[in-house]
Design a protein around this nucleic acid. Sequence first.
DNA 1: GCTTGACCTTCCCATCATGGGAAGGATCAC
DNA 2: GTGATCCTTCCCATGATGGGAAGGTCAAGC
Lengths: 151, 151
Amino acid sequence: MNIGQAAEASGVSAKMIRYYESIGLIPKTVRTEAGYRVYSDKDVHTLRFIRRARDLGFSVEQIADLVSLWQDRGRASKDVKRVALEHVETLERKIAELQEMAGTLKHLARTCHGDGRPDCPIIEELASDAGSVTSRPPPKFGTLGKISVRE
Amino acid sequence: MNIGQAAEASGVSAKMIRYYESIGLIPKTVRTEAGYRVYSDKDVHTLRFIRRARDLGFSVEQIADLVSLWQDRGRASKDVKRVALEHVETLERKIAELQEMAGTLKHLARTCHGDGRPDCPIIEELASDAGSVTSRPPPKFGTLGKISVRE
DNA sequence: GCTTGACCTTCCCATCATGGGAAGGATCAC
DNA sequence: GTGATCCTTCCCATGATGGGAAGGTCAAGC
């Protein structure tokens, strides 16, 4: 099977399959004489595993752990559980951070007329001289990076 | 005031101040003869405004809107409110997405012994042949990008 | 006046996962 | 054999941020 079919079957784009190969997440495939990558059903299975883990928000690094645990038949389930629960914690920290942003904004928006007049508590809060706009200001040297909410 | 002092006073790093200037979010500053950027208290005020908006998760693009609304004394508060509420919606979509991931994982983790034995529902779910791991699979051609949960 | 350290400048690189696209070769269906 | 569709590699872009190098500037202390 060529890369396009493997992509179709696994839900991982051809571009990403090549990328995963380049960073060593998946091994280099067999090639045809012409240099085309060739995939087996087993490879597709692995790719699907990876896609599911991505859908759950695991980083490529964590996925590498998960894949090797998956392929280690003697693994201890606690090792898998640990990876999963650590990720849950990360997710929950992010959720809390986003919720604080959304909460602050909703509160400000509630107090804003939202009509044709110029006075607006939202702008005023952003422009205020006081410390921080969030209740717990993001620690300058904290462990949490900026949250990305790009679409 | 030099860039370092402006950074200190505003909470925006010197690196980011230069970046914001380079992309046109803030205007080019006056320079000393030696080429050093010079900032006024008003500039610092603007930078602090920007930092607060960043803390609330607004993108640089949205911040550009907010800054120009801020500086437009005749703005309609509804224009500010719209930007804010659109961002709240984005935040809430992200929150829901992260919550779904966390929920799925917590459920799987609950059913995993987490001991020395190898059998693990988490891995099994990732490796399963069924469709998607999340209840509503991320639409392949949807409007929502991948969620970033990097730290 | 000269040295030293702290500051500033620009420029390039890295992140992380992903896609776009170009240039060129391979394969396949007709 | 020809055109369409695939594949290859390579480079670039995203978004906000930091790291760091190479070199210029400035102020304080001697």
